[in-house]
Simulated assay, not measured.
Amino acid sequence: MNDTYSVSIVRLYADKDGESHFSDESLPLALAEFAPPAPAILFWCEVLGYVAPPPPEGFAGGDDFNRTLPPKQRDSWFACSDPSGAGPRLYFQRVPEGKVVKNRLHLDVRVGPGLVGEERLAALEAECARLIPLGAVRVRLLPADEENESCLVMQAVEGNEFCLD
C-alpha cells in the first residue's frame, strides 16, 4: 500500500518584546506517494542535520513503539527537530489524498548566506554533491541576476523541488 504523507513546519516567531515562541500554525507539505515514510524522513534529517526524538519511555526505539500501535496507525507519523533548537520542528504525517498539484510548500536550504559570486557557487555545488548520494537530483542552476544571487534547484527523494540558497 502506498501512502501520501505531509510535513508540517512549526514556525518560531518573536513577540513585541522580543521573546521567541513557536506558533501553533503549521504549513502542510504533501509528499509524493511512498511507503513507509522512512526514505523522505531520513533524507530531510540528513539534509537539515535534524534528529529524531528519543523513543517514549519504556521503549528501546521508535520501531518498538511503532509495533505496539494498531496497524492503521503504524508508520503514520514521524517528527524530527534541529538538535540546536534553532530550526523548526518537522512533523511528517500520513494523509489520505495523493499529491495532485505542484509543491504545496517549497523549502530553501540555506548553504551560502552572505556569499556571492564564485564563492557562493562553490558552496552550492559542494552541498549539491553531498545531497546527490542521498537521493537528491540536480534540476537546474538559477544564475545570479540584478536582484538575486545564484541558487540551485534540486528535487528531493519524494519528488518535491527545493532550492539550495
Rank of each mutant, 00 (worst) to 15 (best):
E33Q: 14
E33Y: 05
E33C: 05
F34W: 10
F34Y: 09
F34P: 01
F34L: 15
P36E: 07
P36I: 09
P37H: 15
P37A: 15
P37R: 15
A38H: 14
P39F: 13
A40K: 09
I41K: 09
I41L: 10
L42T: 15
F43A: 04
F43R: 01
F43E: 06
W44T: 09
C45F: 08
E46Q: 12
V47P: 01
L48T: 00
G49Y: 00
G49T: 08
G49S: 03
Y50V: 11
V51S: 07
A52Q: 12
A52W: 04
P53N: 12
P54M: 01
P54T: 07
P54W: 02
P55E: 04
P56H: 04
P56T: 04
G58I: 00
A60V: 02
A60C: 07
A60L: 01
G62K: 07
G62R: 11
D64F: 06
D64S: 02
F65D: 10
F65E: 06
N66Q: 14
N66I: 04
R67T: 02
R67Y: 00
T68K: 04
L69C: 07
P70W: 00
P70E: 12
Q73A: 14
R74S: 05
D75S: 13
D75I: 03
W77T: 08
W77H: 06
W77E: 08
F78K: 06
F78W: 13
A79N: 09
A79R: 03
A79P: 03
C80N: 07
C80F: 14
C80P: 11
S81W: 03
D82P: 07
D82G: 06
P83E: 01
S84C: 08
A86Q: 15
P88Q: 06
R89Q: 14
R89L: 09
L90S: 08
F92P: 13
Q93M: 10
R94L: 07
R94Q: 05
V95S: 02
V95N: 05
V95A: 05
V95M: 05
E97C: 08
G98H: 13
K99D: 02
V100C: 04
V100W: 00
V101W: 12
V101T: 15
V101S: 15
R104K: 11
R104L: 12
L105A: 10
H106N: 03
L107G: 00
L107D: 02
L107N: 02
D108Y: 00
R110H: 12
R110I: 03
V111P: 07
P113M: 01
L115D: 05
L115C: 00
V116D: 03
V116E: 10
G117Q: 07
G117T: 02
G117E: 09
G117V: 04
E118W: 00
E119Y: 11
R120G: 04
L121Q: 08
L121R: 13
A122R: 12
A122E: 14
A122T: 13
A123E: 08
E125D: 11
A126W: 04
